[in-house]
Design a protein around this nucleic acid. Sequence first.
DNA 1: GACATCACG
DNA 2: GACGTACGTGATGTCC
Length: 929
Amino acid sequence: MAFDKGCHLHLIDGSAYIFRAYHALPPLTRKSDGLPIGAVAGFCNMLHRYVLDSNGGDAPTHAAVIFDHSGHTFRNDLYDLYKANREAMPEDLRPQIPLTRRATEAFNIACHEIEGYEADDIIATLACEARNRGGRVTILSSDKDLMQLVGGGVELLDPMKNRRIDAAAVEERFGVPPERVVDAQALAGDSVDNIPGAPGIGIKTAALLINEYGDLDTLLDRAGEIPQPRRRQTLIEHRVQIELSRELVRLDCDTPLDFSLDDLAVRDYDPDVLLPFLAEMEFRSLSRRIAEHLGVEAPAIPEPEATATAAPETPGFDDVKHERIGDAATLAQWIERIRARGYVAVDTETTSLDEMKAELVGVALCVEPGHAAYLPLRHRPGAGSDLFADDSLAVGQMPVDEALALLKPVLEDPAILKIGQNIKYDAKILARCGIDIAPIDDTMLLSYALHAGLHGHGMDTLCERYLGHTPLPIKPLLGAGKSAITFDRVTVDDALPYAAEDADVTLRLWQAFKPQLHRERVTTVYETLERPLIPVLAQMEMNGIKVDRATLSRMSSAFAQKMAGLEAEIHGLAGETFNIGSPKQLGEILFDKMNLPGGKRGKTGAYSTNVDVLEDLATEHDLARRVLDWRAISKLKSTYTDALQTHINPETGRVHTCYSIAGANTGRLASTDPNLQNIPVRSEEGRRIREAFVAEEGNLLVSLDYSQIELRILAHIAGIDELKAAFAEGLDIHALTASEMFHVPLDQMTPEIRRQAKAINFGVIYGISGFGLARNLRIPRAEAQGFIDRYFERFPGIRDYMERTKAFAREHEYVQTLFGRRIRTPEINAKGPRSGLAYRAAINAPIQGTAADVIRRAMIRMPAAIKGLPARMLLQVHDELLFEVAEGAVDEVISRARDVMENAADPVVHLDVKLTVDAGSGPNWAQAH
DNA sequence: GACATCACG
DNA sequence: GACGTACGTGATGTCC
């Protein structure tokens, strides 16, 4: 219905409704699975009451609920601190947000949000247009920011107090008419939205000044005439800030809309949509009331006890329906199912584990356990078919473009949750198909938040442990070794049960894990440290880093020559040729043939020939020294200069590592294929490998790393005042430790004493033992124990921390980081030789894990912080972030990135110790570090 | 595929 | 009283 003169538009501030609903109700959960649902319940009640109330004499002809799109808006581009002091969304509210969109649609009310804009801007744009077309507008909100829109047929209605706010009411509130509200707010600022305004000027003074001078521009131009010196000075000094504040406060009436005013015509409830939704949410009384209102029968909502007895409702894995999607009609049917559900498990099948090379072969979907589908897209004809038609496609597949065009709106729909197992993989594949999948949940990360330390988080492990089922293996489909084929060569018939089952399993795991999150109190961990990291890492991995093949190749040749020389020497010294790379052969040469001392056999009966052993021999025997040299070079060549070259992507000329989010128990990331977190740096020769990691023309690599982050966190957690003070004063922490322990004044510190103290500091983080320290420092064990005793005497808080942590771990079988990440310690109460390991791991995990949480938080905030700058985040190495930045922007990037990193713990955790970040830049990684 | 070794934080 | 011992990772080569 077209919006014309005489029409009446209602605009509901959806986000305000949600927060009101959330705070008005206790934290209700859905009975059957524990999903937090209180805000959705309140929201639905408010919507229904709104519909009943608005059906009076002044009924709207058009109505819409407008939501804030999550994340960044144009105001953040204007001012990066905009709304920066807002508290994070409560953990149990976040999962309810998509449900409120679904609720609005279920109530058959238009529902809109637009990326990059706030709800207020959309409201402003619609209100302006409605007014221009001669209609009336009622905005259901009490937000003072919307008061600037009042007038000319636009009014606010405070839904709580049921009070209309017209121009007179606005003037009463602000002291200025609606059209001057922006000016007054720009002056007064706003602490809630973090709008600076003019310091020292509140709303009263602002109104006074605006009324006297007419408007803000005139006031600022004539600020010099203000008699009061403080006001005059403030306005002159802060003009830029005031003008920025005005831009932040002023609503954008030109928001680009992807719908029209005419689309908002009021519609009746559709009982076939609304009642099933209410039933799904298990809103019993509201369902009944609305069913009565509509004169239909209320849907039956089974009590959880009833469903528990009827548990076999969830089919087993042998009783499943797996459909093949071969045409657009079938796909459309599935998309309808997905839209009705609001979530879908997704699994992509491809030709490679390397997402940068993989081609999409098919997509599996599942919306309820036991009912999954596979959409084959690029399967090739099987073996035995015409060899010349090798690149052709198997029959019965939809055109890829057509299928993706249908799927894209669903996969990008903010109201539909996409669930995957390790969905970063699928997100990257889809990104290369032009699909930006969101919002997402990841069963691997749900398991990681719930069970880190208990077991791995691969699909097979999870399926076996939590669903009691072994998923179909991929091996029989692909084969192994040389004869292995890629997934596109698997027939669709063979692929179907495998692919469909993976999506099915993923959905079942999600249903098992998601409600647990809340019960185990790790929702915040998952929502703030795991899930938001997925797109950030996906982008970094796709960015890759440029690696210069020629440099590596030159180094490989040089290493090969050196190795050949050493090899000849070693064989000469040994008196025979043997494989130096074989510890077995080397051990026999050293300890059997040459009868050198120190031959210790390991559990397999072979002599140990590791660095420690060889290092002891090297002082007396050239052979050992040469072998050490050979090993060092062999390592550099095989693991780095040779292997890295094979990882350069031929299309991008860059190396694209893959980060495992759930690989390390402590919350650290792990880097694979290749591992770019262990590129040499400690030896001069090794560090030169970093010269091959370069920036593109006109760019520099920029490295920022936390200084001593783990020791700082230890100082905070254990509450060691001396260490805190030392960090606060920027002292050399190892020298200070040495001074405290050995009573050497700082100005008489020797490198040797400092080195020992440094080893002790690190030892403490690792759960120190006399034996370990002795080995590290190559000193007698008794002496090492003496150091430790003295350390604990000097810093008793550290020992207290260790004891506290051990006791906590023993009691709970987990430890946790400052941000609530839990690391399970199932071995802690086991007896036997492994218990020592469990203790030390328990002591280390909160420290290492908290540091990992901090840099995760920094990484998650980084894209917004450097948005608009010619800069890309490339790598993370535990306490370091590496960027590639256009030369002119280096200083700005360092400044912004440092700010994010140093304040990454805020506002959730206030560290007693400041985090500091060192920065460097250069044409390659060696020079940037 | 197990093991030893060694690169990083 | 003996045992095994610094925390967390991933990649490589040898050998079975």
